[in-house]
């Protein structure tokens, strides 16, 4: 059988991802995680001295803490299998990427293992976040300097 012909056979046999089901699960779980986040930030606003603007930081840290617990007990990957982007896109997914790599590489020691591999999955998010923020900031700075826009 030729490669081209095999490719066709392969496309016929391989099931398409269940798009609608995946989207629905991502929406529901992602929305739910954000709603929990909303409750956490409300908690910080009511019981601590945080405002709507400053509550974001402790909320994110708390969500990452939840991610550690779920990852450690092997639950986050089960949520991830069901929810896909619904649990990958929230900051808990970022936490899961860091924490799962840390747990995995503990066997190679704290320095070479955990230290060296902590960001092996999440590193690209940090890289592209920082680089794009740099260029966006730079462009904005130039535009402000030449008087096209203001801060």
């Amino acid at each position: 059988m030729e490669k081209e012909q095999y490719k066709k056979l392969e496309q016929n046999v391989t099931p398409k991802p269940p798009y609608l089901k995946n989207v629905a699960k991502a929406f529901f779980v992602g929305g739910l995680i954000c709603t929990i986040g909303q409750a956490v930030s409300l908690f910080y606003m009511i019981f601590f001295n945080f405002t709507e603007a400053t509550a974001g930081n402790p909320t994110v840290a708390t969500m990452v803490f939840f991610a550690m617990i779920l990852t450690g007990f092997g639950l986050y990957k089960r949520i991830g299998q069901c929810a896909g982007a619904g649990s990958a896109v929230p900051v808990t997914g970022f936490g899961n990427a860091v924490i799962s790599a840390a747990i995995e590489h503990r066997s190679e020691g704290l320095v070479l293992g955990v230290g060296g591999n902590l960001f092996k999955l999440a590193g690209s998010v940090v890289l592209f976040g920082v680089v794009s923020a740099f260029f966006v900031g730079l462009i904005k700075y130039i535009l402000v300097t030449i008087g096209v826009v203001s801060w």
Binding site: P15, K77, Q81, A88, N96, S100, A101
Partner: peptide, 17 residues
């Protein structure tokens, strides 16, 4: 798994394949 794909506790969605 850690050799070929992701850490075992990483929550990625595996396809039906």
């Amino acid at each position: 798994e850690r050799q070929f794909r992701y850490p075992v506790d990483y929550g990625s969605q595996k396809p039906q394949t």
